[in-house]
Every structure is written in structure tokens, then in C-alpha cells.
Design a protein around this nucleic acid. Sequence first.
DNA 1: CCAGGGTGCCCC
DNA 2: TTTCGGC
DNA 3: GCCGAAAGGGCACCCTGG
Length: 834
Amino acid sequence: MLDLLGNSRGNVVEAVTNFYEHETEFHKQALASTSVSCTFQARAENKPALPFESQSVKSMHNNEDVSCSQSYTLSGSGKSKKSGISPGKRKRNLDSKATKRKQTNPSQSSGGSKQYTITRFFGKQMPVVSEDGKVGTAFNQCIDDQSRFANDATEPYKEEVDQFIQIVNAGEQLRSYAATILEKAKGDINMALDIYYSDYTDSGNYLLLPPERYSPIEHACWRKGQPAPYIHIARTFDLVEDEKGKLKATSMLCNMFRSLLALSPEDVLPAVYLCTNKIAPDHENMELNIGASIVVAALEEACGTNRSKISNLYNSLGDLGDVAQLCRQTQSLLAPPPVLTIQGVYSVLRKDKWTTDIRDINLTIVQFVGTQRPNTESSPAKNYHQKQQPTAAQTTTTAATHTTQVTNLDTATTDPDPGSGSTIRKKSLIMNLMRSCREKEMKFIVRTLVRNLRIGAMMRTVLPALAQAIVINSADTVAECLKDHLQRLSGAVVEAYNVLPNLDLLIPSLMEKGIEFSSSTLSMVPGIPIKPMLAKITNGASQVLKLFNNKAFTCEYKYDGQRAQIHRLPDGSIRVFSRNGDETTSRFPDIINIIKESCFHGVVTFILDAEVVAIDRKNGLKLMSFQELSSRERGSKDSLIAVDKIKVDICLFIFDIMLANGEKLLDLPLRQRRKYLKNLFDDGKPGYLEYAREMTVEAEDADANNEATLNKMNNFLDDAFRSSCEGLMVKSLDVNAGYTPSKRSDAWLKVKKDYVEGLSDSLDLVPIGAWHGNGRKAGWYSPFLMACYNPDTEEFQSVCRVMSGFSDVFYTEMKELFSGDKIPFQKTTILSNC
DNA sequence: CCAGGGTGCCCC
DNA sequence: TTTCGGC
DNA sequence: GCCGAAAGGGCACCCTGG
């Protein structure tokens, strides 16, 4: 067993290599006996396991035929969805990525590929393969580190008491109290500060109170007129994380918002952004461009820890926020930290703050974060551009240099800033945030920065909580209608968000209207993508017929491409949005042309739903795989890709319309919406703009016992497969057939090969390695690295990683099985890039 | 100065 | 996109 | 039944080192 004890995220890998000798035993035990069906995606270069041309492969050493993905009785195309690649694509990948590692055996046949030593994996550095390692060593090690880490520091507390008094800016009268809490904190000055602040603000767990007993003003930890402190949110997050349960979470978030509404309404919008882990409306394509590595670098410096300690902690905790929280407790604080405010934290997230003149950043920090900054030093400190500006004036006291957030504005403006880019600035900003953290703020700041809040609260929790806060805070609400109001407004806000997913517009409108707000207050706006409607999975035609009994429905091809929501704005411009609501117009200049050419004159605005598919126009308009499509250039925020450089042509398959010439069509049944669609585009243009191929089944034929209908559907499904489609989308035409944004309703169903029994693919693979899991899977191995046996070289060659389809019990068992040093080491080979 | 590596984010 | 698990 | 979390593959960016 080659165990790659590393981390795919942190880029800090502690490798232990082992090889499990009896791979078949393990295989049988671990996988076969539990008959786990797992999803996997093979990587392009790993030919031997996945013969692209042949339809089956002699597998392992028992020479069993393994069904391989690409060819079915229907297909004959050689298309390989699961193995993920067509021959042409594979070649490109080899050319572009494996330049250093030449292919020694160019044979296309199965089992004939070059073996590579992996040096990087997904752009991450691969763990070093060491022959003496033992599985579990790294894990145990980091557990040890962690306990040592948590347990040191037991000194007499006099110094700490002095420090503490200095930090909180108090006099000698506080000494005995300080000694008490330092005793409680075992001398940990930060913990003591936490206790102190917690008592001082006296807002402990008020958020846990039921809404009728929570007093938004008295129970808040700040006063009217002050900016709301970030700790208000951080405490809420911490409680929400501990107190699992959606209702409780909503209640706490509701209390949290009530204080904001009562004391500093201007902080509500940034608070909603922070709670939902967003920085801007999706379609603005604002990116943080901060990942674990930058955060780790900042953490190293801000807390004086080193990378390997962080790495070990991360491997065991599986969450960078938790790691940071732990590191923070060893951070020495010599001066009172500035108070983090909600606005301050949020403004740091906005990209315009990263990229614009650095003075703006500093002003923001000073203005919002530095509100409690001691005014003792007026000279500039050294945090920014320290390396570039060694001559920058230093503050006189060590305390000030250590913690001050003030930045040398003059330095920043005159600095030509050679060779150092945004990374340094980001790191500085993050460090400033980190140094100001109290209590659990660190954990949530870091989680926000790595865009992984993990508190189980998203739009569907946060927005209702805000709605309820508004209802409860309106004084004139009569108790008996309270419940109705709560429910109504919660629903209205979520509904409004789904058609206008823009918090910048929604929140102000909601706060202005209060309980008068309804979902019709705001409507769709061309240029802002609505949340697309989603489909449920079914396992075949007969299940579909049961669900659509006596209801007319349509079967459409489910094209293997990417979803596109296309808007025409009143000014005539065309915009394209992805499934997630990001604007992808720059990737598809050809779509703009196609749309402009195809739609009738007189059409003003519309919003339509379509699938973009790669197409080979030279080869009879043959549709190509998603992989081909994704190899197109991406373009960027400001620059469209050049039309004449497009290598992969696309065809647009339109299938729905939500808005036509200002008319909202969501509530119309699909059958009628289709008429609107026809009115815009007539018949389309083959290979450029087509309607999704469709077959209608009328109500009288929709009967689970109707053999003819069943056959018709199955034939149509086969047709779809033959046309390189993934399967079918089945949609209600008349009954309950409105367009429900963001909903995964029974009105839309999907039928795919994967779900239909007997049509799914299988491969016989052996686990040869694993990573430490993240988050929920921390402490387990996840994902596993899978390999197949190559009889020619008598080695195991990696194929793919697997990560889903396993139950928690399975993970626990695997952890047990591969703990300690049970597994003997043996040499193996991993293919490039896997 | 440019290529490659590191990194982040977007699609399915 | 998939899966599992918690309410 | 709903919803959130965790995961994979590929391209474009920025930074850095030869």
C-alpha cells in the first residue's frame, strides 16, 4: 500500500509510503464485499487502465474481463465519458503537460503506456516517496504534536498578569481579577483575554435565547452608533456550529440580525454576505483569489508557527480554520488588538480593495478595524512592504511594531513595488486581520478566506433568519399573526432571491419594505441571472411513467455540455451566465453572434435556458463530449476570447424561456413557454442554434402499463445515447409545469446511463494510496488513489482517485485497517499526474 | 525575459 | 457533477 | 424530502527562478 499521507489542499505533505502486498485481499475485503458503487473520474494520461480503443481489458492477474466504460451496444463511437477523454484530447494533454516526461511507448493499445514518476498532482507537489515510512506514522505524529502543542505553557502568572493589565488598559485594581482568570486560563494570556472580553461584554450566550426573550439592544455586545463588531457574527457562527439543527441555527442568526437591525442597520448587508460566504453577487465574477497557501503563509508569520506544524495540524483537524484557531492561542499579544468590525472584515474581502490603490486598503483598515487602536504612536509602522522598505520608520516600542495595524501611507504610495505583487499585499492584510482576532474570530475569518464556512447555513437559512428578525423587530406585529408573518416573509425573501440573486438589491429593498415585502416587490432583471431550475434523478422510463401518470410530459435530449442562461438586455447586448450564476459571456463570443443572427427583429429582452455543446461541424455536426467543450479558452473578466481563434465550435440547444420582452413567464406551463421560444427564434439553424430534440407524450399515453409508451421512451433514450447525449430530461408540460427557479422539483426528471440498472460502468481497481480527509472527513482517509495491475511490468499503475459512494462506516473501517504499521512496504509506480 | 510552477476557481 | 448523512 | 459538505479534472492567472 502506497500511502500518500498528504493533503491535496494544503500543499504541505508528509509522506509515508507503504505498499500493501496482498492487494487482492484488501480489494475483496474493502470494496467487493461491501459492493460499494463509487464514482470516479479517470485522468487523461492513465491509459493502461482504461483502454480507449478496446472495449474491455484483461484486468488484474485473474484475467477477468472488466466492463469498461466507453462502448455500449448503442454507441460504437468510442466516446468515453467516464474515462474522460477522446484520443485527440489525450494527445493534447500529453503534448502540453507532460513535456518533460516523454512517452516511451507510444503504442495506443491497452497496457502500453509509459510509467511516470509523479512529481506533482493537480498542481500540488506530490509527497516524497520514502521507503521506510509506515502508514499511520504521520497521523500519529501530528496527534502527538497537537497534544504537546495544547499542553505546554505552565509558568507562574505574574508576568502574564502584568501583560494582561497592560493589554486591557486597566489599572492595578484589576490585578486580582486578572490573576483569577489567568489561573482559569492556565496562564494563556489569549484565553484570559477571551474570558475577559466575554465577561466584560456580558453577552455570553444570549444568542441562544429564544427570540421572544432575546433583547436585541441590551443583549448586544456593542452600543448604538458604534460599528458592529465582527465578534458578534463570530460568536453566532460558533454557536451555530456547535448547536446543530436548522431551527436553532435560524433562531440564533435571527437574534444576531435583530441586534444589527436595531443598532447598526448599515451592517446588515455585509453581515449577510459574511454569513452566506459570498463577497459579491455571483454574476459580478468577483474572486478572492486567496487559498489555503496564502492563508498558511500569513498564519506562519502572524502566529509565529512554522509550516510543518500547521501541516500536521491540518492533516489531523482537516480544517484550516480550526488549525488557525489553535495556532492563535500561542500568539503573543503585547498590545490591545484593534477591534474587528463586520464592515472592516467584509471590506477586506472585496476585490476592489485588493487591487486598487493600496492607500484605499489602508484607509479601510484604519477606519474600520483600527477603532480601538491605541493612539500612543503616531509614527508609521512597518507592516506593509516591510521587505521593500527597510528604511521605513520603525515605531519605538516593540509592542507597537508587533501588533499595530497602522500603515505607512506615504510609503505605500511612493513605493514602486517592484517584483512584489498582490500576494504580499494579501498576506499583509490577512495577517492584520489575524492579529486582531479575539475568541473564535480566527477560525471564521480563516474559513471565510478559504471560502469554506462550514456552519451549515446558506441562503436558505440566513435569508429566512433575516426575514424573521425583521418581523420580530417590527413593534406593531400582533402576536397571533406573528407565525404567519414569519413564514410568509421567509418564503418571500428566498423566492425573491431565486429570481434576483443579488443581495445588493434584495437586502436594501427588504429592509425598506419591512413586513410589507413580498416576492413580487422585486422581479427579474435581464442582466442578472435567475437561479436555474433543477431536475431529479430517476432510474429509467418506467419510474418516469409512474411519476407522470396521466400527465402530459416531454422527453428532451440531455446534452453533454454546459448549462447556459442567455440574456438579452434592453440595449441589445447579449450576456451568458453559467449554472452557478457566474457570467461567462467572455468565453462564448460565438454564442453572441449566433443569438444575434438567429432571433427575430423586434425582440427586445429575453432570458432563456440552454445547453452549450461542443460540435464538430466538419464531421456531420457530430456532438462532442463535455471534455472537448471544457478545453476551450476561458477568457477573463474583461477580455472576450477571439472568435477566429476558437478551436472548438459550439452549438446552442435551447429548451426554455423565462422572460420574453419584459413579460415574466415563470408561472406559465412549459407548453406555453415553448411557444414564446418559437416566437423568438423560429426554427433555428442546424449546428448553431437548435431546439433540444424532444418527444411529447400526451396525458392519455402516460400510463405505467402502456407498453407502447414505454418502448417509445426507451427507443428515444437509445437515440439520445447514439447522438452522444447523456440521456433524457423529462418535463411536465401542463400540470405543475411552471419554471421554478432553484428548485429540484418533480416536474423535471433526468434519466442517465449511470442511473439505469445494467447500463452503468464498472472497473476493477485496487487502492494503493490515500490522502487525509478534509472537514467532515477529517481523521479518515479520503480520497483513495486507485490503480490497476499491469501484468507486463508487474506493477500497479494509478488510475484515478475515488471519493464518493463510501459510507461513514466504510471510512471508519478503512482507517482501522490501515492504521499503525500493519502494512508492509513494497515498490510501486504511480502514473504521471495522478 | 520567459517558461514553469503554484494557486485559485469554474465547469461537470 | 456525484455521494452520504443530519434534521 | 431537503440541504449542506466533500470530493474530482482543466484552464488562466501571477509570481518566481533560471
